[in-house]
Amino acid sequence: MNYLFQRLAMAVMLLLAVSALTFGGMNLLGDPLFNILGPVAADTSNPTSVAKIDAAKEKYYLDRPLPERYVRWLGDMVTGDFGVQFSSTGEPPVTNLLKERTPRTFQLLVLAQFMATAISIPWALIAAARVRRPTDRISTVTSFLLIALPNFALGIILKYLLGIKLGWFPLTYTASDPFFSRLHQLILPALTIALPAAAVYQRLLRTDLVTTLQEDFILMARSKGVPRRRVLVRHALRPSLFSFITVFGINTGALIGGSLIVETIFRVPGLGSAIVEAILREDFPVVLAIVMIATTTFVLVNIAVDLLYSVLDPRVRR
């Protein structure tokens, strides 16, 4: 419990640091007033512009010192309010935009991680069962190639082969479609994220399985007459899952980044397109909100991974 408390305290500090850096960086390097008002912001000779500038400063708290604005923003964020967009109207609130976009990216990532797990575990079991034989060699080469293939390249290849040539999957995402056809539309982008991830997981899991299979308890199980397949799945798999789970957590960060690119290739209007649009408009509250969501998810997944250890391996429990 003490350990969990430490981890959580550390996570909170980390998120504070990330948010302060992002908030400070965006406000010091960017020009919020210009993003809200446009060219009017620079026009201080005209009284109507000055009135507008003052009104905007008042409304968006730009006349307050930076630390105060940060604390204000932080207080709102903790209660689930991400503030107003930096546009002339400030509408819709950032929270509404996030409510619309986040579930799509979330579904995409969950589907991708699910696919990656579903592909990598059987793949690793087969490879480990045939260590150093042709099947294993081919699978090692395949995973090496998949890992070297950038996600945007894989996306284009899949889009060309499965989407255009074979026509199995639609090329774009339609937000208004019913759930199952949206799921169908998410398969290609999810596969683009899942395949390289599966290759990474497979590599790790295979190595750990090979090590586990050398252990005495495996020999014991085999000599009791437990069939090979059952030994692999029932005895060897669970103690071999550690690096797999760690990397599953660490990889979430990379997958969040990857999903931004994949979303643009397959036109999924999720957080990826939202952050790109926001950056081009220099709509800082939206950027900040998405950075915070991505970082928080990443940190939480890694804590969850740590907790999973003790579930999987009673030896870690104290």
Partner: peptide, 20 residues
């Protein structure tokens, strides 16, 4: 380094390139 690592890499790159 921990702070650097906890930014999803691509998002950090997006932030910097867009700000500078």
């Amino acid at each position: 380094m921990l702070i650097l690592l906890s930014f999803p890499a691509l998002i950090l790159a997006i932030l910097i390139t867009s700000l500078i």
